[in-house]
């Protein structure tokens, strides 16, 4: 269905604009794939899996990125859903002040927290441990998660709480038996967003993981230039690495595009 009636000529304009934009968007991807086959053809891809970039193996970056993403999602969902529920359904002293205090941290860029976080991780003995990246991502995402979950629980009727109380449930049981099961879709949406943000995170793994065995895909991308330079002879291998390092995010895109859209448009916004 068309949104509204347009003339044939206008329809043609619409088609050209969308197809033109699509081609523009495909250009970098096609260019990377085309260049990845230069000089040695498919051999470049075999090279990617049998050699390391600056001592970093591609497969281990996949595994590291996945562990960080899952840890990030797990702790954000756990801590965020508990707190969001309390802010929405429990009347406690100082609630709104604490809530606003948490939300004030919504827009902080990670780059200014790098040095303080670095000291915290050194003192906790987490520096150069995947948990350091998990912790910094969790800290940066939590203000948003709290906003997200409070909005979600606010949208559930208060009568649920009343009927649960009449049935003899306390606030803890009301949470675990009534509200949490209803939050399934919210949990999935935010969980997928957490994985996406983890896959996009560049600074935290770059700064907190110097051990090459712990490098993530984005750290490997940063190392590419150093490993190959931008000389023509290496263009094939360089691009083959780029294409392969894009696979985790691409898989996420193919599997979970729907949840990402739902999560982002569900009322709260991040960036």
């Amino acid at each position: 269905m068309d949104m509204f009636l347009v003339s044939k000529g206008e329809k043609r304009t619409i088609r050209w604009v969308i197809y033109g934009l699509g081609l523009l968007f495909l250009f970098p991807i096609v260019s990377a794939i085309y260049n990845s086959l230069k000089y040695e053809g498919f051999e470049n891809y075999i090279f990617v899996f049998t050699h390391k970039i600056n001592g970093i193996s591609v497969l281990s970056t996949f595994w590291n990125s996945l562990q960080i993403a899952v840890g990030h999602a797990f702790f954000v969902l756990l801590v965020g859903s508990l707190a969001g529920y309390a802010f929405s359904k429990i009347e406690f002293a100082g609630k709104e002040i604490v809530y606003i205090g948490v939300l004030m941290c919504l827009a902080i860029p990670l780059v200014v927290m790098i040095v303080p976080f670095f000291y915290i991780f050194q003192n906790l003995g987490l520096y150069n441990h995947l948990l350091a990246v998990v912790c910094s991502e969790v800290a940066m995402t939590l203000p948003f998660a709290v906003l997200f979950f409070r909005n979600f629980y606010d949208s559930l009727p208060k009568e649920l709480m009343e009927s649960a109380t009449i049935d003899g449930a306390n606030v803890f049981q009301a949470f675990s038996k009534v509200y949490l099961p209803l939050a399934r879709s919210a949990l999935i949406n935010l969980g997928v967003l957490c994985v996406m943000w983890s896959f996009q995170d560049f600074l935290a793994p770059l700064m907190f993981l110097t051990d090459k065995d712990l490098a993530t895909t984005n750290v490997a991308i940063n190392n590419l230039k150093g490993a190959f330079g931008l000389s023509p002879g290496n263009v094939g291998k360089f691009n083959a690495f780029l294409v392969v390092l894009g696979i985790p995010a691409l898989v996420l895109f193919l599997v979970a595009q729907k949840f990402i859209t739902q999560g982002i448009t569900s009322g709260a916004l991040k960036d």
Binding site: F25, M196, F199, Q200, D201, F202, T217, N218, I221, N222, L242, L245, G246, A249, L250, L252, F253, Q257, I260
Partner: peptide, 8 residues
């Protein structure tokens, strides 16, 4: 591109 890592 919105989903892909900016670094990439």
């Amino acid at each position: 591109p919105t989903i892909m890592p900016m670094a990439l």
